[in-house]
């Protein structure tokens, strides 16, 4: 299958007794921005390194672009760009030299490289810093250099391992925009992170992992519909009297309502999936003559998904 960028089948990686990746299977289509989401230590980097053959693994098969990936698959490697989790650049070389040095690992032709390097510098917006050494760059700029070094050869598959760790919000947004841009130019992207919001914003498909195991996989919406939690409604009660217990009880009896909390002056209602939750809740309040001010309704986030899934997993372990 030509349009399958990466496929991993039954991958197992142990560090001694510790199982870092536990029977992981995974398919990534060409053109996706695939998110690998999991807390620190969940095995994201290990998975990536196994795919790249930087690590030996105990079991499993890895194919890239439909061909088995090995340590000497130079042709495949030329089509892959990696932005490692730890910034890995040469301290003694300038920004431009660094990008060129890494690009040279993929593109021997000097003239072609010159254009690629210029493009990469533009892309990460480091034009004003080409003569700087990495030591002189701030954390955000350094991360951008790290990215430029990984993508200068314009690979078809780009793997970014937590590229936004320790980056200020402004740089982070620039980086995320850049990744979208790469994807629009046709690159398949694998993006690992432990920041749910990022993955949620960026990725077309997401795998949630914990302790080396795949917990859930799907699009943003698919993942959210997997869980019980629906929208979260907050209502500010502005009446002179606090809400009566009977009103709260009536809200609890509504269909699709999971929990109701009342902490003066705010009412929190957590719903399961359902179409008319907000109007139902407000209908009850109006019917009881309760005056209310600001009303907000938030759809569920990946945070909810993760909490719910890992929560269940944790309970399973305890049992």
């Amino acid at each position: 299958m030509a349009d399958e960028a990466v496929s991993v089948e039954g991958l197992v990686k142990r560090y001694g007794e510790m199982v870092a990746v536990d029977n992981l299977s995974l398919r990534i289509e060409s053109g996706e921005i695939f998110g690998l989401l999991g807390p620190n230590g969940s095995g994201k980097t290990t998975t990536i390194n196994c795919v790249l053959q930087l690590l030996s693994y105990d079991r499993g098969e890895v194919a890239v672009f439909g061909r088995p990936m090995t340590a000497t698959s130079y042709e495949l490697k030329r089509r892959i760009g990696v932005v490692p989790q730890d910034v890995a650049v040469f301290d003694e070389l300038t920004v431009a030299e660094n990008i060129d040095a890494f690009c040279a690992l993929y593109v021997p032709d000097r003239r072609r490289r010159r254009a690629l390097v210029a493009e990469a510098i533009d892309f990460v917006d480091l034009g004003g810093f080409t003569k700087f050494r990495p030591r002189k760059l701030s954390g955000g700029l350094l991360r951008r250099l790290n990215i430029a070094c990984g993508i200068a050869h314009q690979p078809e598959l780009i793997i970014l391992d937590e590229p936004t760790v320790a980056v200020d919000p402004q740089s982070r947004n620039a980086i995320l925009d850049g990744i979208r841009g790469l994807n629009e130019r046709g690159a398949t992207v694998i993006y690992t992170s432990h920041y749910m919001e990022e993955v949620e914003q960026l990725c077309t498909r997401i795998m949630i992992m914990d302790a080396g195991r795949q917990l859930a996989i799907g699009t943003n919406d698919e993942l959210k519909s997997m869980i019980g939690t629906g929208e979260r409604i907050r209502v500010e009660i502005i009446g002179t009297e606090p809400l009566g217990e009977d009103v709260v009880e009536q809200l609890r009896r509504l269909g699709h309502v999971r929990t109701v909390d009342y902490e003066i002056p705010e009412l929190h209602v957590e719903c399961t999936s359902g179409a008319h939750n907000l109007s139902d809740v407000l209908g009850v309040l109006s019917g009881r003559g309760v005056a209310y001010g600001r009303v907000t309704s938030e759809p569920p986030t990946l945070n909810d998904v993760f909490l719910e899934i890992t929560g269940r997993a944790l309970r399973d372990e305890a049992a």
Partner: peptide, 21 residues
């Protein structure tokens, strides 16, 4: 060398034959 440093890991991913590196 991949196992020794992030730089080594990165250069192990080169698209040109290892012996050249």
């Amino acid at each position: 060398v991949a196992g020794s440093s992030p730089l080594g890991a990165r250069r192990t991913l080169a698209g040109i034959p290892r012996w050249k590196v």
